[in-house]
Write a protein that binds this DNA or RNA. Sequence first.
DNA 1: ATGGCGGCTCGCAGCCGA
Length: 257
Amino acid sequence: MKIATWNVNSLKVRLPHVLDWLSQHQPDALCLQELKLEDRNFPLAEIEAAGYHAAYSGQKAYNGVAILSKGTVLDVCAGIPGYEDEQKRVLAATLDGVRIVCVYIPNGQSVDSDKYQYKLQWLDALISWLKDELTRYPRLALLGDYNIAPEDRDVHDPKAWEGSVLCSVPEREAFHKLLQLGLKDSFRLFPQDEGAFTWWDYRMHAFRRKLGLRIDHILLSDKLVPDCGSCRVDIEPRKLERPSDHAPVIAEISRAA
DNA sequence: ATGGCGGCTCGCAGCCGA
């Protein structure tokens, strides 16, 4: 099965790109972040016309996550159980025995802001929930916009970004804690080009100049790792008119025997 | 990268993203 993640930065604006991408790549599941729309405005008819089911948890103007899938999903769960949060950032569902967890991890704004503290607390809550979730669902994939560049090689200019939000030590430690749960960064299971990023600032022609960060990830539980055949970033949609500032990431998982 | 763009909103300026 093909699973993918894409921060679309407004599903209303990016719907044509999403529909084109679905028809081109035919993923079995596509996790979306930053829908920026309420559930009553979710473009369900268009998604269904493209041959996909949709589970979604949206809100006005900010955040919002969805899981589009070819097959029907089970046990849909929005949010982190037991963690009060008005911001719609998590959606989990089971597809063909694989627990798909779609996350939009808080941005954090800057290391000295309240939003950064929220980000770290939020990550703590995510980690303790996932520890539990992994015992229930050994075949689990955590896909989304992590807003964390795990290593210096995930940053176009590590010196300039050193210690700043998305790259700070506490954020990278939280990412490492996710790995310690028994998850692996599927992107690093395979040889990749240098300067492979998933996000480029809209400003300063950052995409053209290859000034990006790798902050969107697909982590796989140990049980899924042996079944993973590929993981790559598709930078093509970033070249379109009115693109999202993020590119999709896709991984291929062979079905369990 | 001091900002620069582009999305959003009881819009016509300010907030937020990363």
